Amino acid sequence: MSAHSDSEPALTMRDVAARLGVSPMTVSRALRGQRGIGEATRQRVLAEVAALGYRPNKRARELRSGGPSELIGLVVTNLANPFYSQLAVGLEQICVSYGARVMLGSTGEDPATERDVVADLVDRGVDGLVVVPAGHDHGHLGGLRDVPVVLAASPPMGIDVDCVLVDDFGGTRDACRRLVARGHRRIGFLGLPPSLWTGSERFRGYAVALEEAGIALDERYVSQHRGDSGLAEEAARAMLALPDPPTALLTANNRNTVGALRALRDRAPDEEPVSLAGFDDIELADMLHLPLTVVSYDPVELGRAAAKLLFERQASTVPQPPRRVTIATTLVDHPAPR
């Protein structure tokens, strides 16, 4: 086929990709000689580009991204949570090796805002998305043309995409088992909304550990709300004010752990000590005034794994079933300073 004349509409990278049955990112990598695609695919792209007379609009890409790089969108729920900054570090480490840059958007844990943020990133021309979803409805992520999506910290609901998870159930069960092994029978749980995967799975780990130990679940010792340290502190104080308060607290994320620590800080010296265990490690945990057991994992590895899935999906020229990667957890005991 001969090159387009000046009167014909200009070819786009998406046009070339559609003719070859590959992704626009695959075409982009072939043209720039980047890693991530096979040599046979590279040669097929270059041959088609030559036949069509396609010339990439380099100036448009540079204006779009600030340089000759691909763009990967990262959508998170709460920028105040250190978990997401570490996830972003891991994502960026892999993106840099592919010549890509990361564009960040935050939803404030609001599903409607998530839709707007995703739409804005797609309009800005991102080549892929890593999304920590704000709710359980992921349908709006299933129809993004030529933009692959990887979910982080939640499995897909109603769409077929790759995901990277933390062992939320196993980690929480292990932490609750540790408290039970130390003799605790009244264990308060400062959880997350049950509509979230992390919320439901971490509560399930807590409930299963109690059931295994023959301990009846007492609703007075359960609070499930969005990860906010102020709400967690309020819930912890309410539990500790009960006639038969919990002797241990188990928190579902680092923000809830901070709230629990604030509630415990004001207890009188003659009051019964309350043990604390929480999901997510927190900075300076080893310098606290009380012992703390944390469910630890590597959020940087979570970001790296999400990026690898994304680039592997882009490089694939044949349909593949959705993949799931689970990041393992470990228990870490931080004893109180002597």
Rank of each mutant, 00 (worst) to 15 (best):
P111T: 14
V325A: 07
G303N: 07
R64C: 05
N57D: 07
G158Y: 05
D244T: 15
D146R: 08
H334G: 10
V75H: 00
V166W: 03
G73I: 06
S106A: 12
C176G: 11
L91E: 01
S7F: 15
S106C: 12
S195Q: 11
P194R: 15
V149Y: 00
E114D: 12
L121C: 03
T317W: 13
V96Y: 13
L331V: 06
C176K: 01
I72Y: 01
G143K: 13
R64V: 10
G191F: 05
V300L: 12
D116Y: 08
I282T: 12
D333I: 02
D174T: 15
H334L: 06
W197F: 11
S2Q: 10
P24N: 07
V122F: 05
R220K: 12
V295C: 00
D15K: 07
R262V: 08
L261P: 04
G259F: 00
G66L: 00
S5Q: 13
L288E: 03
G227R: 01
D244A: 13
A232W: 00
G303K: 02
V122H: 08
V102S: 01
S97E: 11
S229L: 15
P24V: 07
G205I: 05
D218W: 06
R42K: 14
S223H: 09
R220D: 11
V75N: 00
L63Y: 03
D286H: 12
Q34I: 08
R178E: 14
P133G: 10
A181E: 07
P156N: 10
A50N: 13
L129W: 01
E234Q: 14
F279D: 00
D286V: 09
R255M: 12
R101F: 14
S2T: 12
